[in-house]
Amino acid sequence: MYSEKVLKEFRHPKNLGKIHNPDGLGKVGNPVCGDLLWIYIKVGKNKKGQEIIKDIKVKTFGCVAALATSSKLTTMAKGMTLDEALKINKEKIAKELDGLPPQKMHCSVLSMDGLRRAIEDYRNKKAGRIEPSKKQPSRSSCRHRNKKGNGKSN
């Protein structure tokens, strides 16, 4: 069912764990199968002065594909500028893993969403903006919501 690369990534995962006092935190849950994932980032600068992902860690509750894509995404994103990291998409992650079973493609979407939330969280905090989730207490929508990171490691 899984490619050799997926199995290798699952057996030898990278960047699993958490960062204390992260610059950005993205928490996402997948409504399709119930996987959950927290992404922590530390932001630094490269020689050109661009903001880069200096360190990244992920905590994942999920299946083999969820763990493998979490590991692969963090490996890909580490060292990238924030703008480059935002361009990572599910196809790129899947390609790096020699493909995913069709019903597991959403796992790569989940880790990608987590990273986007973490970057957004960092940028919001930097701009001194109030957490959007705190401004919207009403929960009328039942669509897939990604929980915004609050910047505090827990």
């Binding site: 995962p13 764990g17 409504p31 399709v32 959950l36 905590k59 994942t60 509750f61």
Partner: peptide, 22 residues
């Protein structure tokens, strides 16, 4: 468990609600 974001006391009710709905 070491690599899971879940442990006792972590609130995931918001995600749960999504999941229940779907």
């Amino acid at each position: 468990r070491k690599i899971s974001p879940l442990r006792k006391g972590v609130d995931i009710s918001e995600f749960e609600e999504d999941i229940e709905h779907v």
